[in-house]
């Protein structure tokens, strides 16, 4: 299997933040969603993959190229969009499109025009007069129309209104048609990533909490509501991430659900009332709070 990127034991230290021991890979043609709260290390991780920052330890490979040694070759095939990227405010979108066309041979003018229409963007307007949402969409257009093999997007939906958010996610879905293109995009909102992403990676305080196929998370985790008294020591069970009681009502969140769990809970005096699947957001928060892996 060839990988869009692979990180092996990667670390990066800043004065007030440290990314530690990241081993992670994205098979080519897949979409990965990177989820974490502000300050989790999402941007640092993306910058390492773009080659903008160099790792202090470990190995970074992008589309077969070793970074930072072969970053020139890698950058040609990477499209990176992040909020702190600046466009020329006095120039129009058209001017930016022409600039990109000169730099990148794979630029598709047809696709750029289609995106401008879909994003409801005027190409003849100076970008300084555009709203935040329009500038985000303009940046994304410039990135997508290059048709890079690896698309790296740092919080592409943050700060967008609901309509613009859906437009951006729909444009990202287009990329799925091509098995040779891969996407890594970050968000602090699980709802943005869960529908499109094949793999979801949770990052917290510079560490990898979990990385798995979305269905795997959904299959493994359960919220179990029981009747009875909370047995002491239940929290120590490896499959239990959290357990709390209110009177005779007990709520358990299991990180490793299996069919034998209700019977084992019954043996402890807990009658299972209902068992529900959990949303990704709930899974992420429960995993982070319990301090264990998801």
């Amino acid at each position: 299997m060839s990988f869009a990127f692979s990180l092996n034991g990667v670390a990066k230290r800043y004065p007030h933040f440290e990314l530690q021991d990241i081993t992670l890979a994205l098979p080519e043609g897949q979409v990965m969603g990177l989820v974490g709260v502000n300050g989790a290390g999402k941007t640092t991780l993306l910058r390492l993959i773009t080659g903008i920052a160099a790792a202090d330890a470990g190995e970074v490979r992008v589309l077969g190229h070793r970074l930072p040694a072969e970053q020139v070759a890698a950058k040609r095939e990477i499209g990176f969009a992040s909020e702190d990227m600046r466009l020329y405010r006095t120039q129009t979108l058209r001017w930016h499109m022409d600039l990109m066309q000169q730099i990148y041979p794979a630029w598709s003018e047809d696709y750029a025009r289609e995106l401008a229409k879909r994003f409801d963007l005027r190409t003849d307007q100076a970008l300084g007069g555009c709203s935040h949402g329009q500038r985000v969409k303009a940046l994304l257009l410039l990135c997508l129309a290059r048709r890079p093999r690896l698309l790296l997007l740092d919080e592409p939906t943050t700060g967008l209104d609901p309509v613009a958010r859906i437009e951006v996610l729909e444009a990202l879905a287009d990329v799925l048609r091509d098995a040779g293109r891969s996407v890594l995009f970050s968000s602090h909102n699980t709802h943005d990533v869960e529908q499109l992403a094949d793999t979801i990676t949770f990052l917290h305080k510079g560490r990898l909490v979990a990385s798995a196929d979305r269905n795997e998370f959904i299959d493994r985790w359960r919220r179990i509501v029981c009747q009875g008294a909370l047995p002491s020591g239940l929290s120590a069970w490896p499959e239990i991430a959290s357990a709390r009681a209110n009177g005779s009502l007990v709520e358990i969140k299991a990180r490793a659900w299996n069919e034998s769990l209700p019977a084992r809970l019954a043996a402890e005096g807990l009658q299972v009332q209902r068992t529900d699947a959990m949303g990704l957001e709930d899974i992420f928060i429960t995993a982070v709070r319990s301090g264990g892996a998801a």
Partner: peptide, 17 residues
Amino acid sequence: IRELAAASRVSVITVRR
């Protein structure tokens, strides 16, 4: 699988399953 995923805006892995 990829066409259905892109048109319905869900992940490829979901359609494959």
